[in-house]
């Protein structure tokens, strides 16, 4: 594929009608990029060993690297023995952790005979830390090459889905850079990001490609569900997308996935917290999950050449189907240049 890859400056993919002041030359270039990405998607779908692009490969969002390598053939550059780099980094990481544990013991005097020994432990720790950093750097460089097909696939899927939903593609930002943050003593690497002010969605392609073949589609469609929710709410006013009577029904129906169910659980068994911020959050998350389910089903049905299942067939309760239809009917994308309404539900239920 001749479009190259990875430069964020090339990612201002915009339709010609959009308000951005892009030149014809730039548009041609971005259009060319889009076509190349669409080709990448087709190749990923049809290529030998690519497998089904929208099913399977689930639950790789954790840290099971070896499992991931087996599960995602066609998503990676097979000529690179990535497991060798992973094993080396794993070993260096564990050695570093062990050196830190020894240092932590040494500074508290546990298991170390002499007071000065903590300096020895510190030197060992620093040495192990540097060895881990080196192995990590080497691994990340190898991953970028190994994941190139997977990142192209994720990008193509995100663009395809955004276009299908008439979401302005210049609101999609793509990057191969990584962003890590810590919560509760655990480290996380970002795969996607949504900015509620600019309504921009940032796709961190490496994180998506490392997660699963469906992560790009699931992430983008889930976030587009949130955009639709926010836009609908902006249109009618906060708290006016459903009535209290409806909220009780929604709370009783609960979520449509383990994830959305967890938000209803957090809301406090729903019916006890009618009108609460948690309930609004639970509705928002459930709508996003329905939106994602519908998008994944749309893609899978298209790929398999069969009719799409209805929301009911996908296990979405009637009350949620109605609420989802209401919100999608009200929602318009925020730019004003795109006032097409989402038609996902109509397509699913046709």
């Amino acid at each position: 594929m001749g479009s190259g890859y990875g430069a964020t400056s090339r990612l201002a993919l915009a339709a010609p009608s959009h308000r951005c002041s892009i030149t014809a030359e730039v548009y041609q270039k971005t259009q060319s990029d889009y076509e190349a990405m669409a080709q990448a998607l087709a190749t990923a779908q049809d290529g030998e060993g690519a497998g089904h692009p929208f099913h399977g490969n689930q639950h790789t969002g954790g840290t099971g690297r070896a499992e991931h390598a087996e599960q995602v053939p066609g998503m990676s550059n097979a000529s690179i023995d990535i497991e060798k780099f992973w094993e080396k980094e794993d070993a260096a990481h564990e050695a570093r952790n062990e050196a830190v544990r020894e240092y932590n013991k040494a500074i508290t005097g546990k298991g170390w005979a002499k007071k000065e020994d903590w300096k020895v432990a510190q030197a060992e720790m620093e040495k192990a830390e540097q060895a881990w950093k080196d192995a990590k750097k080497e691994m990340k460089q190898a991953e970028l090459k190994w994941l190139k097909p997977g990142m192209e696939h994720a990008k193509a899927v995100c663009i395809e889905e955004a276009k299908r939903q008439d979401f302005p593609v210049d609101k999609l930002k793509f990057t191969t850079s990584e962003k890590e943050f810590n919560v509760g003593g655990n480290s996380f690497s970002e795969a996607g990001h949504f900015d509620p002010v600019t309504k921009e969605i940032t796709c961190r392609l490496k994180g998506m490609a490392l997660s699963s073949k469906t992560a790009g589609l699931e992430t983008i469609s889930h976030e587009l569900g949130h955009v639709a929710f926010h836009v609908a709410e902006d249109t009618v006013g906060r708290g006016k997308l459903w009535s209290i009577a409806r909220e009780k029904e929604l709370a009783e129906a609960g979520g449509v996935s383990d994830y959305s169910k967890s938000y209803w659980s957090k809301a406090g068994a729903g019916v006890h917290c009618i009108g609460s911020g948690y309930n609004r959050l639970a509705v928002n998350e459930t709508i996003a999950e329905i939106h994602s389910k519908a998008a994944v089903e749309h893609a899978a049905a298209k790929y398999e050449g069969r009719p799409e299942k209805t929301l009911k067939e996908l296990g979405v309760p009637e009350v949620w189907k109605t609420q989802y239809n209401d919100i999608m009917g009200i929602s318009k994308w925020p730019t004003g240049a795109h006032d097409s309404r989402l038609s996902v539900t109509e397509e699913v239920d046709a």
Binding site: G61, G62, T63, D90, H93, R96, N97, V100, R101, N104, E180, F181, G185, N186, S187, F188, S189, E190, A191, G192, H193, F194, D195, P196, V197, G207, L210, S211, T219, H222, E223, H226, H230
Partner: peptide, 14 residues
């Protein structure tokens, strides 16, 4: 309203 979707990394001892 900001949203981050992320993978969990392997544990790093503090």
């Amino acid at each position: 309203g900001e949203v981050r979707i992320a993978r969990k990394n392997t544990e790093t001892v503090p």
